[in-house]
Design a protein around this nucleic acid. Structure first.
Lengths: 231, 231
DNA sequence: CGCGAGCTTGACGTTGTTCAACTAGAGTGG
DNA sequence: CCACTCTAGTTGAACAACGTCAAGCTCGCG
């Protein structure tokens, strides 16, 4: 099985970005012809901190993590699911090297368009660029929220916040299967693995959640939301 | 003395944004005619967290702080000096309310252009929007760096980093006068005021810096840089 | 069957916050 | 002009939160 391919029909792709709906059929075709879909297996690195951002990256299938390699441990900035660009702001910043790494959390397909083509398109179509700009703004807000969370909340508050994020935003269900390891969960909250495990155990003991391996059930969403807000 | 005025000659303003150099004389004039310069005294609030972003904000004189009001204490995200937009990403995000507050650290002049006018201009002139997009990307990177610093470094490391920032980036001198109080310095590093004072005293005792009230001298920049990186 | 990775728990030390007390200087009103 | 008050700055001590180290456990895989 080939590890890469050309997209067949971007126009009718159910996962395409809203930005692409602003393009003319010709413009879309041009991007399609220059786009490569690369398949990444779980755990594989998609982009590496410090390398030059030569392509736009877009998740067309799967789940990836955007993280920074620290001296001791990594920090996961966020998970990105299908239908979203990855760190698109890096393409527009002065120094165009990635200040983060990207890896596949699940088997994923990534659409890659050369930076120049993407740039040309942004220069040509106002609404496209506008949509990209909004995208970057949203990304800024996400990081902003994370900064606040890190600065204001305790480890417990951040972990609860993350669990609710999975439950409410990603899976939209009170029961879900964590797609990541305990270590990654900890890295996502910027706490130690041991502390993450400890807090999970406490929350179970307090009957706020239920745990069965990677299967987690939110038992008291309202109370947890309150706890996350104040602690 | 009036607290607000219309700009007289944006074209020749020495502090104007690079984005404005992409405008035609007519476009610039239109912005100028719709722009208000508001004078804020030290300590006054320029924009309040939760309110709607109705104008673009630009620092044409002075120094301002962009901060978030927490339950216990504030968190200063960054200081912004003259020649820069303030939280421009808020203008382009879905919900257009500020998720931060802005206040004058020194007496400052702020140029305000109604959002609609600014938007129209962005829609009309490709290069202008492109420059704004780069601006937002840069802002994202700044917050990103702050997030990393907060997650990786100790209080001591963050404080040293901030001192070096003032010395190297803002004042470009080994001796400078802190424009902010100890409390604000602490909020800028996301630590308690007491801890900030304590660390400053330690650094003085260790002969790494010198302190005389708000006047600070960096005595061993290289060593401090090293300390900031690893701690 | 043994090995390693992921997970879990306990013990302990470090870091940083909070509380409390004190000082210095600036501004205010009698 | 002097007492008063308020804020900023400073230092010490107690305490809580969190990370680190160590040990053991389970499960899947070679």
């Amino acid at each position: 099985m080939p590890r890469f391919s050309r997209p067949k029909d971007c126009k009718n792709c159910p996962y395409k970005s809203r930005a692409f709906s602003h393009l003319t059929p010709e413009e879309l075709l041009k991007l399609q012809q220059n786009c490569l879909i690369i398949k990444f297996k779980k755990g594989e690195i998609i982009a590496k901190q410090g390398t030059i951002a030569s392509h736009s990256l877009y998740v067309s299938k799967g789940l990836i993590k955007l993280y920074v390699e620290g001296q001791n441990r990594n920090i996961i900035i966020k998970l990105i699911s299908e239908g979203n660009f990855i760190g698109i702001h890096s393409l527009f910043s002065e120094l165009n090297t990635y200040n983060f790494s990207v890896a596949a959390v699940e088997n994923s397909n990534i659409c890659m368009i050369p930076k120049e083509i993407f740039y040309q398109q942004a220069q040509k179509n106002q609404n496209f660029l506008f949509e990209i700009t909004k995208n970057i703004s949203k990304c800024t807000n996400t990081i902003f929220e994370k900064l606040l969370s890190l600065s204001e909340k305790s480890a417990r508050g951040r972990l609860i916040e993350t669990l609710l994020y999975f439950s409410e935003e990603i899976y939209k269900s009170k029961t879900f299967v964590l797609p990541i390891t305990r270590k990654e969960l900890a890295e996502l909250c910027s706490i130690s693995t041991e502390n993450a495990v400890r807090i999970l155990s406490e929350l179970k003991k307090e009957e706020l959640i239920d745990i069965d391996g990677k299967k987690i059930t939110i038992k008291q969403p309202a109370l947890l939301a309150k706890l996350s807000a104040i602690s």
